[in-house]
């Protein structure tokens, strides 16, 4: 992909998550890009650099849909919704278990953060439930808090 224009910076983490899941879970990669596409269009689809970037992203999404067309999670958004929500919850629960066991490490920080990004992605299917909003807020806060503690040599509470 071409370099991300500054106006679209807020979708960079969702695009990175897509890249990281390209082989591990293409359905996750597809919906992360769909979220990035929708959000990017709202942010700026007028300036030439953003249009160029978004057209390339759309090309990529269309190709992915063609390749993954047989997958129910792609052809039926209701199945896709369940897939992304379950995946986000799985990430959240892994990080939460580590947290409650007092095991603080980079992987659990990343899991909290990825869970929060995937809950953003769930919004492509409709308004987020209150429970998802709370999980997203908690996961993002925990990721930042534990990251800062480890950076400063402190033990998270």
């Amino acid at each position: 992909m071409a370099a991300l224009p500054a106006q679209l910076r807020s979708i960079q983490h969702h695009l990175r998550t897509a890249q990281e899941h390209e082989r591990r879970d293409p359905v996750v990669a597809y919906y992360c890009r769909l979220y990035a596409m929708q959000t990017g269009m709202k942010l700026d689809s007028k300036t030439p650099e953003c249009r160029k970037f978004l057209i390339k992203l759309m090309d990529q999404l269309e190709l992915m849909k063609k390749d993954l067309g047989d997958n129910d999670s792609i052809s039926q958004e209701v199945v896709g919704n369940a897939h992304i929500e379950n995946y986000a919850l799985k990430m959240f629960l892994y990080a939460d278990n580590e947290d409650r066991a007092g095991r603080f490490h980079k992987n659990m920080i990343k899991s909290f953060y990825t869970a929060s990004l995937l809950l953003d992605v769930v919004s492509v299917f409709g308004e987020l439930s209150e429970e998802n909003i709370q999980h997203r807020k908690y996961a993002r806060w925990k990721a930042t808090y534990i990251h800062n503690c480890l950076k400063n040599g402190e033990t998270p509470q």
């Binding site: 769909l34 929708q38 269009m41 689809s45 249009r51 057209i55 759309m58 999404l61 269309e62 849909k65």
Partner: peptide, 27 residues
Amino acid sequence: TGSVGTSVASAEQDELSQRLAKLRDQI
């Protein structure tokens, strides 16, 4: 002119919106 530029931009924007709707089977 500026208005030609604007029309081109909005046509491309519409094209993106249409492709997005098609991708999501909304048209």
